[in-house]
């Protein structure tokens, strides 16, 4: 959208400064800063960690947070702060893969739901309905009872659980766009349906797709954590945020830090993504209404 503003014919030579042209808003900036800090600390885990994530120290079992162990230690004396940092690498990577997978598949299905052959569309409609109505945790339980849980299975589960949400949004926008005059005009001019879908309608989906990407990523962080917490996700000893909390589950009454602190990492990460999503949505809305005024 900022491109259309930038190439506007009336644009004065020296426009407003770059940061103003990006149309940033407070939630977007706050979310982006928070996410950057979290991403950097996950990437720089080897530099920041005060101990190895799997270093067992049986002389320092379940110690409360202190100067030596900022987040305390777990049931076998592993440094929780280091585990949370390394767990971030795993959780963010898995969630990222799940987000990209579910978004790609969801977009494909959504576009098919709007532009597919007449017999394809109702099938996709129903599939979206069923998928949205079906509880993902139950789906995960059914599948992991058949296939041994592992990280690839977890990513597959994420895609299965989240594609419908993306598909519904993409389908709704594409259908709305399809009814507009320019699409009808292209149709009358003999442009093929595939070409209309890809070159004319798909670009209008993109801003919403960016919002969806942020929101889905937040959802996937929570999803990874939930399934790993239930023992159906990333398998020990690999640290992931949900897995770390599962380790601490049995000590919840005596060692609060084992569940509360890793959870804080999850909450902050998805909060940053939700803020980015909200900010992007507000930005898209603002730019749209401005276009409408012109």
């Amino acid at each position: 959208m900022s491109i259309s503003v930038a190439t506007h014919p009336d644009r004065p030579r020296s426009g407003p400064p770059l940061w103003r042209r990006l149309h940033l808003n407070p939630p977007l900036v706050a979310g982006a800063v928070l996410l950057t800090v979290l991403l950097l600390s996950a990437i720089a885990a080897p530099l920041l960690a005060t101990a190895g994530p799997m270093d067992i120290d049986l002389r320092a079992v379940r110690q409360a947070p202190s100067a030596a162990h900022w987040f305390g230690t777990d049931a076998v004396g592993r440094d929780l702060f280091s585990r949370v940092l390394y767990g971030g690498q795993v959780s963010l990577l898995v969630a990222g893969l799940g987000m990209m997978g579910s978004l790609s598949f969801g977009t494909l299905m959504g576009m098919l739901g709007a532009f597919g052959a007449n017999w394809v569309r109702p099938i996709i409609d129903r599939a979206i309905d069923i998928q949205l109505a079906f509880p993902y945790v139950l789906l995960a339980i059914a599948i992991t009872s058949a296939v041994k849980p592992s990280t690839p299975v977890l990513v597959l589960l994420m895609v299965l659980a989240a594609w419908a949400g993306a598909a519904r949004v993409v389908r709704a926008i594409a259908l709305q766009e399809r009814g507009k005059d320019y699409v009808k005009a292209a149709d009358v001019l003999g442009v093929s349906r595939l070409r209309i879908a890809l070159l004319h309608v798909f670009p209008t989906v993109l801003p919403s797709l960016m919002v969806l990407a942020a929101m889905q990523m937040a959802a996937m962080i929570v999803f990874e954590a939930t399934l790993s917490f239930l023992g159906m996700g990333v398998q020990p000893p690999t640290p992931s945020w949900g897995g770390i909390m599962l380790d601490g589950k049995n000590y919840i009454t005596s060692s609060w830090w084992l569940t509360a602190l890793p959870g804080l990492a999850i909450v902050l990460t998805s909060l940053s993504l939700v803020l980015i999503g909200d900010g992007l949505q507000a930005r898209t809305d603002a730019l749209r209404s401005r276009e409408g005024d012109q």
Binding site: K249, S270, V274
Partner: peptide
Amino acid sequence: AFGQSAPVFWSGA
């Protein structure tokens, strides 16, 4: 924003 970010099992805990 908070409800969307906090997993059920964490807020539960």
